[in-house]
């Protein structure tokens, strides 16, 4: 039996009938068509699917779409405003914080909440804050540098 859900995604209202077992990540990618959030492990480990639900970073592979009914969701596609990249996106670009890019959407969404909670984090706090996101290319150093650079840019 399908359930109707209404969500706001990147500022746009959506209403769909979904099966209760549909994961939020599959809803975003396959129903709404937003391919930014990635599917990595699908078991809460890798963080590639991270999106913000009501302002909180969550793993969209470990949430049913029906749980998001009524919520505001922000995906990596909603980070840039008026064609201008978010300071985190710019910093990831400038600091070479990605190679293959698979983990990047999740890294950006987690880093965004990290900087909201702590606008001027130490290197250790950044590493701790990103513990739920795995990167298999960079060795993390450039990602940490990028988050630091973004923090400075955002006036932390």
């Amino acid at each position: 039996m399908k359930t109707e859900i209404s969500v706001t995604i990147n500022g746009e209202a959506h209403t769909h009938e979904v099966e209760p077992r549909l994961l939020l990540i599959h809803y975003l990618r396959d129903v709404v068509g937003l391919k930014g959030p990635h599917i990595g492990c699908e078991t809460s480990i890798c963080g590639a699917c991270t999106v913000a639900v009501n302002g909180k970073a969550v793993k969209a592979c470990t949430m049913f779409a029906v749980q998001a009914d009524g919520a505001e969701i922000l995906t990596v596609e909603g980070l840039a405003e008026n064609g201008k990249l978010h300071p985190l996106q710019e910093a990831f670009w400038n600091e070479h914080a990605l190679q293959c890019g698979f983990c990047t959407p999740g890294m950006l969404m987690t880093a965004k909440e990290l900087l909201q909670r702590n606008p001027n984090p130490t290197e250790e706090e950044i590493r701790h804050g990103l513990e739920g996101n795995l990167c298999r290319c960079t060795g993390y150093q450039h990602i940490v540098s990028a988050v630091k650079a973004a923090a400075a840019r955002m006036g932390g």
């Binding site: 809460s44 991270t50 909180k56 970073a57 969550v58 793993k59 470990t62 987690t110 513990e131 739920g132």
Partner: peptide, 9 residues
Amino acid sequence: IASMQIRNM
């Protein structure tokens, strides 16, 4: 308890 995302949920 590991990761911001899991602590949020």
